[in-house]
Simulated scan of single mutants.
Amino acid sequence: MQAPGTKLDDMTPNSDHQAAGKTYLVTGASAGIGYFVAEQLAAANATVVLGCRDTAKADLAMRAIRTQVPDARLRSVRVDLADPSSLPATVESLDVDHLDAVVLNAGVMPTGPDRRVNAAGNELTFATNHLGHFALLAHLMPILIATPNARVITVGSFTARSARLDLTDLQSEHDYQPKRTYERSKLAQILIGFELDRRLRAHGIDNASIVVHPGGALDSLTPSRPPLFSRTTTQHLLALPAGALVHGKHAGAEPIVRAVLDNEITSGELWGPRIFGLRGKPHREAPHLHMTDPATAAELWTASSKLTELDPLPLPPNIPVRTTSEYQRHGA
């Protein structure tokens, strides 16, 4: 119950037993922000499924979580977003008849100047961060629709504020710039998150699509979680000045966990850190216009469907849906 005079944005959900009986899938849960999302959800008594490409790292992550949450209920499934042909087996291995939330968190950043492609011939960053999650969502959608009030949490990036999508060059074939390609892939995820909200509303489905970003999150401001990863005292001390602007990955996970657990948060909202969108407690934000543009999002959905040969939720014809201006009015 919200206390009188307390704003929703100032509340921190009471995690004790609040997610008991719930099952959540977190992609990219063996490192960084995804790990802390899994840890914090486990502390809320949920059953957490760690979706990881590297099964050995998933095992290490579960060991690390259990040092913090001894009675954690954990499982792992192999999720390789760069290989869309593997995703039906991933969903089958979940072996669940309900899924209360999926956190679409996993992602890669380009590690060199050269453009790379996956086995399907799609540019690797866009294919992993966006198309992989789009395809995974398509395979998960029957389970999500069958679960009352299930949530799809799309993890975007603060960098999407300055990114602009080029619908004529989604694969960065004509002008490949690694940093920009990453930023566009995160913007694509955000656009699809808002488009999914429109489609859920159009179908009258009670699931929620919520978009979240973690702000600026540094490894050096993040507490150690052996045997998965460690941060030295020297690294932490050197990073302290940066703490005035950004935070650690454990804090970056908080808006995501809030979006999973807080029933007051509704479909179509954007959440991130309070202070300049870079650090601080979670709060609701007003999305920038280019993040919610219905025409761009619809065209991106169509292109993504063609590239993956999947459609998570076809839009019924002639049904009014929320517009960009309505997302602005529902923002902070």
Results as ranks from 00 to 15, higher is better:
L131M: 06
H133C: 08
H133G: 09
F134Y: 15
A138E: 05
A138K: 02
H139P: 04
H139T: 08
M141V: 05
P142D: 06
I143G: 04
I143Y: 01
I145C: 05
I145A: 13
I145T: 14
I145Y: 00
A146P: 01
P148K: 09
P148Y: 07
N149Y: 09
A150Y: 05
A150G: 06
A150F: 06
R151A: 07
R151I: 03
V152N: 01
V152L: 03
V152E: 01
I153A: 05
V155P: 10
V155I: 14
V155R: 08
S157Y: 10
S157Q: 12
S157M: 12
T159Q: 14
T159F: 02
A160Y: 11
A160H: 15
S162M: 08
A163R: 02
R164S: 14
L165T: 03
D166A: 13
T168G: 11
D169H: 08
D169R: 09
L170F: 10
Q171G: 08
S172C: 14
E173M: 08
H174A: 10
D175H: 15
D175V: 00
P178W: 10
K179D: 04
R184T: 02
I190M: 15
I192T: 14
G193S: 03
G193I: 00
G193Q: 02
G193V: 01
E195H: 06
E195D: 15
E195T: 04
D197W: 04
D197P: 01
R198W: 05
R198P: 02
R199V: 03
R199L: 03
R199C: 06
R201G: 09
A202G: 13
A202R: 06
A202Y: 07
H203N: 11
H203T: 02
G204L: 04
A208D: 15
A208N: 13
A208G: 07
A208E: 13
A208C: 12
I210A: 12
V211E: 02
G215C: 08
G215S: 08
G215M: 08
G216E: 03
A217V: 15
S220Q: 15
S220K: 12
L221H: 04
P223Q: 10
S224Y: 07
S224P: 00
S224I: 08
R225D: 00
R225A: 15
P226Q: 03
P227W: 01
P227S: 05
S230V: 11
S230I: 00
R231P: 00
T233I: 10
Q235N: 10
H236S: 11
G243K: 00
L245W: 03
L245M: 13
G248F: 03
K249E: 08
H250Q: 14
A251W: 00
A253E: 07
E254L: 12
P255Q: 06
